[in-house]
Every structure is written in C-alpha cells, then in structure tokens.
Design a protein around this nucleic acid. Structure first.
Length: 276
DNA sequence: ACCCTCACCTGCACGC
DNA sequence: TGCGTGCAGGTGAGGG
C-alpha cells in the first residue's frame, strides 16, 4: 500500500522497535517472498545477527544487520510488519517470521503476495539491482530543479506515468502523484516534455510539499507495534486527499466535478477545470 | 533506451 | 444470496 511517506513511517517504527535486538530465529514461510534464497539459506544469513538500524532508499526498507548483511524489504501493495507476543497465533498470509531475543516475533504479513525480500551484503548495497537505477532521494540536493527539468523534458509519456517512474522521480505513488499534479494545476494526460517551464517549477515544489506534509503528519501518529503497515494515512488522513478517490465530488478549488481516468492501467483523479 | 501490456495475489464493493 | 466484474496506495518481465 505504501508510498514514500508511509515507508518512511514504517522504517522509523522498525528502528524504534527492533534496533539493537538480536534475531535468534528467522523463518521464510513463503519461498517466493525471497526468490533469491532457499528457506535454509535465508535462515542462515539472518539467524544470530543483531539489528543495527533500519533505513530506506525510495520505497525499499533496508534493515542493516551486524554481520555485513542487509535485509531489503519492499512492501509493494499490502506487505506489513507486526511485532507480536511469542504465543500469539500467526495471522493469515504470514510469509516470514523473525524471532527476537525479547521473545517477541516480528512477522511479515502480505495478503496480496506482492512483497519482496532479499538479503544482500551491506557493502554491496549500492550496487544492488533493485536500488541502482532509482532516482535521487526527493529530499536530497541531487533531486534539484535542474535534475527534474532534465528528466521531464526527455520523457514522452504522460505526465502521470512519468511521475510514477521510480527511476525518474522517487517516492511518489498513485495518491501523491495525483495530489502533486492537482496542486501544480497540471494536466496528467499531457506528455511530460510538453509541460511548460513555469508549471515544471511549480510541480517540482508540490512534489516536495505533498511528501513533506505527509511525513510531518505521520510524526504525530502513535504506531501500533502489532500493526506496522503504514496505512495510517488512509484512516487519519483519508478525508484529506484533495482529489484522490474523489471521483464525482466537487473540486476544493473551483467546484467542478473531479474526474477519474485510466492511465497505465491505474486510476488518475484530477480536476478537469483546474488542471488544463 | 524507451514504451506498452501483462502478470503477480486476495478481498471488497458493486450491480444484476 | 450468489455470482460476475472491476478495483485496490507497486513493480518486474517480456515484448515491440
């Protein structure tokens, strides 16, 4: 489910809950969750290590262990972690379990089976194929207006599809892409390279704004360790989307009806009057 | 190198 | 009630 702010929240929560903990047991239940490993190999790489800290790159969660290994995790649509008491029954769709020295279990649960894990040498992380072609982090200096102008002017895809391409712009998903385009008053259907310069600048600022405001919002939330799924925005923030999931409702700016159109097999929500 | 479609899963909300 | 359809906050493979 998560986009960058949600992944950031999950990462921060994991850091609080499990850094410094020893992993006394690791079990891969659904082998396809970590297709690069066998069940036994997965256990061997992790068991007995201690968690140094959790960080992230884009929407990938990176859990550094003290044995020069990093557990890379992508939640995709429905992956989540749960820190459960020892005797608690395992939830449906539990695909991996990490036993901690506290007696608790960190469970990875994923209803749709899209999630992904891989253990990689920490020193080799920068070359990991999942990470190597990702765009710069949106809050880094490298993600500059000049960079953004450069990539947007080379893309002939629709603006919406361009914004979802993690090798061009990192961290947006379907919601924040729609929200950023709405704030910048840009038409999601226009080929990316035809967006006028002034709107590119505005869009660049709005990308930061939507990501930032959600991260700020997430810092006020109290996270349930038994449900670290990053879906808190849906509940607490759910009515605050400006256009996303508001088909047929009135635009908060002009009152026109919000439209939903398919783009790249997914729904784009926008105001046809404001975003021209 | 780019772009497009499909594939990966389950569950839920909807209309008939 | 049941069944079929479309949709869900993501990406990768494989084709052109």
């Amino acid at each position: 489910m998560p986009e960058l702010p949600e992944v950031e929240l999950v990462t921060r929560t994991l850091n609080t809950l499990i850094s410094g903990r020893k992993i006394v047991g690791a079990k891969l239940i659904r082998e396809k969750l970590a297709p690069h490993h066998t069940k036994a190999g997965f256990t061997k790489l992790i068991k007995g290590s201690k968690v140094n800290f959790a960080h992230r790159r884009g929407k990938h969660i990176l859990i550094d262990l003290d044995n020069d290994r990093t557990l890379m995790v992508h939640l995709r649509m429905s992956g989540r972690f749960m820190l459960l008491p020892e005797e608690r029954e395992l939830p449906k769709f539990t695909h991996a379990i990490f036993d901690l020295d506290t007696g608790e279990r960190l469970v990875f649960q994923d209803q749709r089976h899209f999630g992904f894990m891989r253990v990689e040498k920490t020193s080799a992380l920068p070359r990991a194929k999942e990470l190597v072609s990702l765009a710069p982090e949106p809050f880094s200096d490298e993600f500059s207006l000049e960079y953004f102008q450069g990539v947007i002017s080379k893309s002939s895809r629709s603006l919406k599809e361009f914004l979802l391409d993690q090798t061009k712009v990192l961290g947006l998903g379907n919601i924040y892409a729609c929200e950023a385009m709405f704030l910048a008053k840009v038409n999601p259907r226009k080929p990316a390279h035809t967006v006028p310069k002034r709107k590119i600048e505005l869009l660049f600022m709005m990308i930061s704004q939507v990501l930032n405001e959600s991260i700020r919002f997430s810092k006020k939330l109290r996270i349930d360790p038994e449900n670290i799924d990053g879906s808190y925005f849906g509940g607490a923030h759910g009515n605050h989307w400006r256009v996303y999931d508001r088909e047929g409702e009135q635009c908060v700016e002009c009152g026109a009806k919000i439209k939903r159109i398919p783009q790249g097999g997914r729904s784009t929500y926008f105001c046809p009057h404001c975003q021209r």
